[in-house]
């Protein structure tokens, strides 16, 4: 399963990728904003997107909406991992149709649980 990790912070991308490797996912690719993520998604085969919210150019919420509108990528699982912890933020993300939501800081276990939950519902 190939993961696309989208975050403008190189540190966070590295932390998320390390956490994914820790829980057994090794096929990973990265993008630093929503626009670059869309470019990757249309040129590479990706099975799962993990995205931050606050990013320049195209933020995570806009990326989610773009993916959902896309004719072939529409059903891609999306997990939002963000510092935005207000209830209205979570609702906005849900309305944009992310599959699940994690508030930073997270642990590899939390990440695994969320991924499992999404994949279980998807299957």
């Amino acid at each position: 399963m190939k993961f696309l990790v989208v975050d403008d912070s190189p540190t966070m991308r590295r932390i998320v990728c390390n956490a994914l490797m820790e829980i057994g996912y090794t096929d990973l690719t990265e993008a630093e904003d929503g626009q670059k993520a869309m470019d990757k998604l249309t040129s590479e085969e990706v099975d799962f997107v993990i995205t931050d919210w606050n990013m320049p150019v195209m933020n995570g919420l806009e990326l989610t909406r773009s993916i959902r509108k896309h004719e072939t990528l529409g059903n891609l699982p999306i997990l939002m991992v963000t510092t935005r912890g207000l209830k209205e933020d979570v609702l906005s993300a849900m309305q944009a149709k992310v599959n699940n939501y994690v508030i930073k800081p997270f642990t590899p276990d939390i990440l695994r649980d969320k991924i499992d939950m999404i994949l279980k519902i998807g299957s």
């Binding site: 540190t11 932390i15 390390n18 930073k104």
Partner: peptide, 12 residues
């Protein structure tokens, strides 16, 4: 792993 995860404080 815990140190690595705690480094999320930098982003925050």
């Amino acid at each position: 792993t815990q140190i690595m995860m705690s480094l999320q404080v930098q982003d925050i």
